[in-house]
Write a protein that binds this DNA or RNA. Structure first.
Lengths: 286, 286
DNA sequence: ATTTTTCTGTAAATTATTTACAATAAAGCT
DNA sequence: AGCTTTATTGTAAATAATTTACAGAAAAAT
């Protein structure tokens, strides 16, 4: 059983469970972290059922037995640090906030990974593979994401550009043609200027891919929406991890394109690597 | 016991273990993934020791008993996907490479998190807190990181700039003064131009923080080196996750600064939030 | 209302883990 | 070197946990 799917398996099989098994499920969902250290007797007592019922429950959600279930649960919890909430406080030490920032980022990435629409992603990759040129639009924090994306696609021998300036964006949009692709990146999903540019691009017959929250104007304005929802408490001490999710999603697109381009690309990358070498300090030999 | 530290605890306590306990440790390290599904009898047999020895070993590495040990190990393995190797292949489906890209990024982040020098990090935060102005230097992929960092620090009411152009970088470097801080970002750690700019900044009496691989010329040229080592197979199909690690590290620095700045910042961020709102589409009410 | 089926718990058996102790090996001492 | 002491390991027993088999109860169907 894939660990990440366990709590989901529990919740989704809730209706099909027997009455007393459901008691077990409910108790477990309400006490995820404690359950992994419980013995079957304790759990049975707390859930007010008999021990065999617990075992039956474990089998019902696809595990071998109680031990196997606990193991799977422990793994899922370890891979989703969110279950213990992460929020940096005033009193945190360096070590504490460092861990929290990293953990919350990891948490975001895992959640995004599990919520992606793979069909859309595939469509996006297909579109990018046959594109004549690819441009990235983004403002604010997304401008950096666009720059990064441009750099990444450039390495893949795709003619790529990134615009953070509304004027340039609109000028570029006006020059788009069928066979071109624009990737619009927005964290809020509600940037008016960006939506205008997107409409213009669509009217020119080019394809617009959006990386934005679901149900947002930006996502809705796209031909291929890639939706990413990160609950972003806009408190200061909460780091903005949606940027990172956007970047990783673009990595996925790039990998998809690289895969399609296949072998010839490898040579190109090697050449580029060698080209960069002249700008560097020699490697020490120790 | 903190799960992430388990295998480390095992390896590091190897010398202090007794002969037969070491047999257990060695077997476990060589069979991490299998061990979590083993019973104590199997493990004892495979490691050619008695069952109590296994229990003694578990206690020696800081666990309550065998069960507790297995749980901790399972959690650690779940939180480090790397133990099953991640490399995108030609035949991977969208789902496969998507997961691999996300997982390898997560893996990188967790490794970096555990290898950071927190003392240096604290020094960097201290320096940034009292800085008059902060500038970010980076080329290539690190240029996007620098842009992102600039944006992030700007939000924290720090006068920040980012330069990806060697000329601008050098001009800026020449205008540095004591009390200023430069953060030099490099994935290779060997960019000659960057090192020159760093030397110039240092000669002006400003502080240079480097984000670069350890033992690299860039790291060595800094007053405060923040070292990040990501084993980056320069194969095409391996995503560049060191960028992401750099970004997250900068998040940490930003959080550190935000924490020091304390309450007044909160108001500022709220104001800025409201300011951005006029550039956006209205929120739908559904 | 009775039969059949499904569900749940009791009690027993199995299996796993841990403890107590004894034997052995290693180290220290005279 | 030989004896004593201490440390290490395994054997066997006890404890504890999980699972199975079965029977009783509840629900559904006839």
């Amino acid at each position: 059983m894939k660990p990440a799917a366990l709590t989901w398996a529990i919740s989704s099989s809730l209706p099909s469970l027997r009455k007393s098994e459901r008691k077990v499920a409910e108790f477990i969902l309400a006490n995820l972290t404690n359950v992994i250290r419980m013995r079957i007797v304790d759990l049975a007592e707390k859930a007010e059922v008999s021990e065999p019922t617990v075992v039956r429950f474990c089998r019902a959600v696809g595990c071998e037995g109680f031990q196997d279930f606990k193991l799977a649960l422990a793994q899922q919890l370890a891979s989703s640090p969110s279950y213990g909430q992460i929020a940096v406080t005033d009193q945190d030490s360096v070590a504490e906030y460092t861990f929290k920032v990293f953990d919350s980022t990891v948490d975001t990435l895992l959640k995004v990974r599990d919520s992606l629409d793979l069909k859309m992603l595939d469509q996006a990759v297909q579109a990018l593979c046959v594109a004549n040129r690819v441009e990235f639009y983004g403002f604010g924090a997304s401008a950096a994401v666009a720059t990064d994306a441009q750099h990444k696609f450039f390495r893949l021998q795709v003619s790529a550009a990134a615009y953070a300036d509304p004027h340039l964006q609109n000028m570029s949009a006006a020059s788009m043609a069928p066979g071109d692709v624009v990737i619009a990146i927005s964290q809020s999903g509600r940037t008016t200027t960006l939506i205008n540019a997107m409409e213009r691009v669509k009217s020119r017959g080019a394809i617009v891919i959006a990386i934005a929250p679901s149900d947002s104007p930006v996502a809705n304005a796209a031909n291929i929406p890639l939706t990413i929802d990160v609950k972003e408490d806009f408190q200061i001490y909460t780091p903005l991890s949606s940027r990172i999710a956007h970047l990783v999603l673009i990595d996925v697109l790039a990998i998809g394109v690289a895969q399609h381009k296949g072998g010839r690309l490898q040579e190109h990358l090697l050449e580029m690597q060698l080209g960069l070498e002249v700008l560097r300090e020699p490697l020490e030999n120790h």
